[in-house]
Amino acid sequence: MKNNSLFNQYEKLKAKYPDVIILIRITDFYHTFCKDAQIVSSLLKLELVNRTAESNTYGVTGFPASKLDKYLKTIVKSGNKVGICDQLHDPKHYPKDLYGRTIYPDAFNSYSPGHPWYYHLRGPIIMPQHIQPENIDNFLDVDVPKDLIKLERLQSKHRADLNKDIKRYLEVAESLDPDDINSCTSMSLKYNHIIYHLSYLKILSLKAGEQTTLFA
């Protein structure tokens, strides 16, 4: 199957086979969405991730291709019919990231860079200068020091911590092994640490009524 939009392909297949659970393989993982994802995650005790696209929220789950035979028996025994879609393209034609690793288009789009599966599915590494706070709502209640000196000290601390996390983020990125879930988890944690410090610094700047440079 061609790798356009993974979710769009799922929707087309589901419209054609509404009574069948659709499993789509990309790299070494099988994915399914929406109601199928709810059924599969419940039967197999897998994580169900909610994603939003074009104002629509849908569930997605997946499992390693190596477990297909085992999981397929469980799904079928529960009375469900299953349709399996395998990829037909040659990975050698895919683009490479900055570290020479293959990027599988659209496979990772169901996850954010803050999730280990994003890296497991060969999502491209985002350079620190391109990382932006995703949502600062959780920081709106931050107690901002009224004393300017204390405020500057707090900002300096977060900048220092941010720079440390950026350094570590780049180190983890260089040694990232997409097939090692622990390595992917470390990468997602470092990304989330950067998001945290950027968000905190942004809300401090907004509440202090001044513009600050997030990257030193």
Rank of each mutant, 00 (worst) to 15 (best):
K2A: 08
N3D: 11
S5Y: 14
S5D: 15
L6P: 08
Y10L: 05
K12L: 11
K14C: 03
K14V: 06
A15M: 04
I26M: 05
T27L: 03
T27W: 06
F29N: 12
F29S: 08
T32G: 01
C34A: 14
K35Q: 06
K35E: 05
K35D: 06
K35A: 06
E47K: 13
L48C: 11
N56C: 06
S66H: 13
K73S: 10
V76F: 10
K77D: 15
K77R: 15
S78M: 11
N80D: 11
K81I: 11
V82Q: 10
G83C: 12
D90P: 12
P91R: 05
P95N: 05
D106A: 12
A107F: 06
F108G: 01
S110P: 05
Y118A: 09
Y119M: 14
L121V: 11
I126N: 03
P128W: 04
I131V: 13
Q132W: 07
P133F: 00
I136L: 00
D137P: 02
F139N: 08
D147S: 05
I149M: 05
K150P: 03
E152I: 02
R153L: 09
R153F: 01
A160T: 04
D161C: 11
I166M: 08
K167G: 13
R168L: 12
Y169K: 02
S175D: 01
L176M: 01
P178E: 00
N182E: 09
C184K: 11
L189H: 03
K190W: 05
Y200L: 15
Y200T: 14
L201M: 14
K202N: 13
I203S: 05
L204K: 01
S205M: 10
K207E: 02
E210D: 04
Q211C: 11
T212D: 01
T212Q: 12
T212V: 14
L214T: 01
